[in-house]
Write a protein that binds this DNA or RNA. Structure first.
Lengths: 141, 141
DNA sequence: TGACAAACGATAATTATTATCGTTTAATAG
DNA sequence: CTATTAAACGATAATAATTATCGTTTGTCA
């Protein structure tokens, strides 16, 4: 009996020109079973239960591959290294997916968010940080 | 002649219980002159022009101190390590400043952003990533 | 001014991630 | 169905970013 996850992953790989390996297949399945925002290490620990011989490097390599192919997305578009915010005014960020540049944009220029103090679940809102993700003028050619 | 930056920094330190050292003072001044989103290393390179003997560790220690005191802010509330987004639906994030947890919230629950295709400067919008920053129910006590 | 805690500089340690390389495996042509 | 070959694997070294350690120096406050 074939599970119906396999064919869809096989298709996904075909669409992106990736070879279908056992490791990749199980990696993908394991991640699907981890809702939320797992780190590569967390994925690795889970994956080892199904493929004890798997390497952490393989996990990193394939997660990067999935991200670069657009099969998966990162939680933060700029998680790389610490950046200090030196713009004192209320503003948000334009993040270019190609050149990775971050530029500032006035809150007024993109429209205000409807502000609420409390959200469902009792979360107390302090501020909104909005990343507008797309292509900057330069990178559109 | 005293520059009027010094007294305000002195006050800032007093408010947050920090000692006023020469290194800290110049670090702060240098960062103020770097609009945008400098990295610790970029700050270090600039700062060395004014205090050649300064250590990179001192830069890191004091930036962290400033961040923890709330004197400065980070560009991204979750820059730490790579996180994979496994929630397929359109959603945004509630980021707790205390426990660092990231939970998902439906786009509908926080109100829609006014969507535009193009922004001033020719930026081509692909999607919005919104972080609602504040305190989760747990951390409010 | 002098004592003491805090901050400094140098550098070791840690963590996250990527690169290298010899071996194994999947794709596919015959 | 098997042989060829490029791609992927596992182990591990290398790199980059950040934090910890520790002996010395400096700011704070009595």
């Amino acid at each position: 009996m074939q599970t119906d996850l396999k064919p869809s992953f096989r298709q996904l790989c075909a669409d992106h020109g990736l070879a279908v390996t056992h490791q990749r297949q199980v990696l993908y399945e394991v991640m699907q079973q981890m809702p939320g925002h797992p780190s590569p290490d967390e994925v690795y620990l889970r994956l080892r239960k199904r493929i004890p011989s798997i390497s952490l490097a393989t996990v990193y390599k394939n997660i990067r591959l999935f991200l670069d192919s657009g099969i998966l997305q990162e939680v933060s578009p700029h998680h790389g290294s610490l950046r200090v915010e030196m713009n004192g005014h209320a503003h948000h960020h334009l993040v270019c997916i190609r050149c990775r540049s971050i530029s500032d944009i006035d809150e007024a220029s993109i429209g205000e968010m409807p502000r609420r103090k409390k959200l469902s679940g009792g979360f107390l809102v302090q501020r909104y940080a909005i990343d507008v993700i797309g292509l900057c003028a330069e990178c559109q050619r």
